[in-house]
Amino acid sequence: MEAVGLDVLTWMVDFLSGLFVDPFFAVARRPDKLVQILIQGVSAGVMYSLIALGFVLIFKASGVFNFAQGIMVVFAGLSVVVLIEAGVPAILAIAGAVVVMIVMAFAIERLVLRPLVNQDGIILFMATIGLAFFLEGFGQIIFGADPKPVPVDALMIPDGKIKVLGGLLGKPVRIYELDLTAAGFGALMVAAIIVFLNRTKIGRALRAVADDNQAALSVGIPLRTIWVLVWSLAGIVAIFAGVMWGAQSQAGFSLAVLALKALPVLILGGFTSVPGAIIGGTIIGVGEKLGEFYWRGVMGDGVEQWLGYVIALIVLLVRPQGLFGEKIIERI
């Protein structure tokens, strides 16, 4: 009995030191690894943010928690890939995908949102889960179930890598040009969205709809147009996210599950905040890559599958509205 108790104790000590002490030794041994992982984490975070951005846009303007955003990303990415494979020039392929997403926005507004107007948020949320299933089946029928590689050359996305900081850290750190492109374009897009929301007439109308449907209607803002607009916008964000995600691995329907990672990002950043989506994405990305690498010894592979959610959960317990969200949750 005593021996068993001792075993458990040693195991506990090993486990805890593996969690909280060993990582620091590992960092001291190979500082370049830490920098490398931080960079990986940031680039993963940018990718999550790109998906989260679409969520935020739709949530801000229509109060709909769009579960189908992940599958929209896949859909958009595959449209681009399939068009290029068919021999269409890259620019036209992207334009074609934009058309596809706008048509989809019209269809969703007409067939899903309009009949459900004035329903509870939760009913709309479940409707978008249904939408996600529909699009997954539909997409697999028209695009095929197999993942497709994104033709990076045709889209003129650089895919080399740069080595930096070799002198400082002992070994050079790799930065992928793809990630840099994604981050650069992402920043550009966020800036454009923020300007659009705050400086243009349509952007103001959009925020008005988000604040109060009824009041917006009564001052003459066309609700349906706004909805189509914002879903199209989210679709266009999805094209970019889809191409970038696809360029990293492959464009396929398995990305849709990965896109669920955008949910903890949203919780962390707050549902209604565009900068929150970016910062939340970065925190989740960095956190899970660090966990995956430094806790592999004690916890095994795959820590990154859930660590993001747990980080979000802990943040929720302390700050239910997220880091940048509006404080709308009542305390109970």
Binding site: M126, I129, F133, F134, I141, A145
Partner: peptide
């Protein structure tokens, strides 16, 4: 069977939306 599976997804999704409406 593959097509049937995809159709199943579509029909599921459509039914959910239909019922909610």
């Amino acid at each position: 069977s593959e097509l049937a599976k995809h159709l199943e997804f579509m029909i599921f999704g459509a039914l959910i939306i239909f019922f909610l409406i």
